[in-house]
């Protein structure tokens, strides 16, 4: 395993030992190595520097179509834990871990709260939700009048904003998502269960002494 670390860390800044990453997450060592295959492919798509830039992330999400997307930007910002404008392998694995089918519901709810708290104020505010609704209309072919948007906002805040102070706090969000569990569907990626079969080439690149399953 020391071998893996020393070789990969030369080419991949911030690279962490797969055994260590496996110990911190729901992934096995083999699954971390399979994720490394995915990481290598994304991080070399524009500049082969061993880090994922926002442009590379969007290219991977939208399959080579250049798209500016509020939500993809938000997700990238949450992957960019060190706030350096790029994502290293350790952060890539730790954030994907929240999307694992075995990750806790609490972690998934917390992640969505941060995702939708666009301004990072600790509250999901009405103007932020309006901004996201307008973004979704721009992205899709859906057409909703301003009155309909305000109606959706009224209905949503009536249900979610329990103390009716015009913003959704973390505990209100927990209650709201518990009543609307479909909102967490985006937070579970079944792909993560099959990652070693999706990227079997990890076996040829493994530098871990023994592949744990």
């Amino acid at each position: 395993m020391g071998c893996f670390h020393s070789t990969a860390s030369r080419q991949y800044p911030g690279h962490e030992d797969p055994v260590f990453l496996a110990s911190q997450t729901a992934f096995s060592v083999s699954e971390v190595e399979a994720l490394f295959e995915l990481f290598k492919s994304i991080s070399s798509s524009v500049i082969d520097d061993g880090l994922i830039s926002k442009e590379e992330f969007q290219l991977a999400l939208f399959k080579n179509k250049k798209k500016e997307n509020l939500f993809a930007n938000r997700i990238f910002d949450l992957f960019d834990v060190k706030r350096k404008g790029v994502v290293d392998f350790g952060d890539f694995v730790r954030v994907l871990n929240v999307f694992h089918p075995n990750a806790s519901q609490e972690d998934k709810i917390d992640f969505t709260f941060k995702l939708y708290d666009l301004d990072g104020t600790g509250y999901i505010e009405r103007h932020e939700v309006r901004q996201m609704l307008i973004a979704i209309l721009c992205e899709s072919e859906l057409k909703l009048s301003d009155e309909m948007i305000e109606g959706i906002l009224d209905k949503t805040f009536k249900e979610a904003d329990v103390d009716q102070d015009g913003k959704i706090c973390r505990s209100e969000w927990h209650q709201f998502v518990s009543k609307n569990p479909q909102l967490l569907k985006i937070m579970t990626l079944q792909y993560l269960r099959d990652i070693t079969t999706t990227f079997p080439s990890f076996v040829f690149h493994s530098e871990v002494d023994e592949i744990a399953t």
């Binding site: 995915l38 996201m132 959706i152």
Partner: peptide
């Protein structure tokens, strides 16, 4: 379900930008 009958976050969660599954599709 009509979009007007959905809550705001149901609509938002349909964004393609939130579908990380596409990272795994080759």
């Amino acid at each position: 379900q009509s979009p007007a009958a959905m809550n705001a976050f149901e609509l938002i969660s349909t964004s393609q930008g939130l579908n990380l599954g596409s990272l795994f599709e080759k």
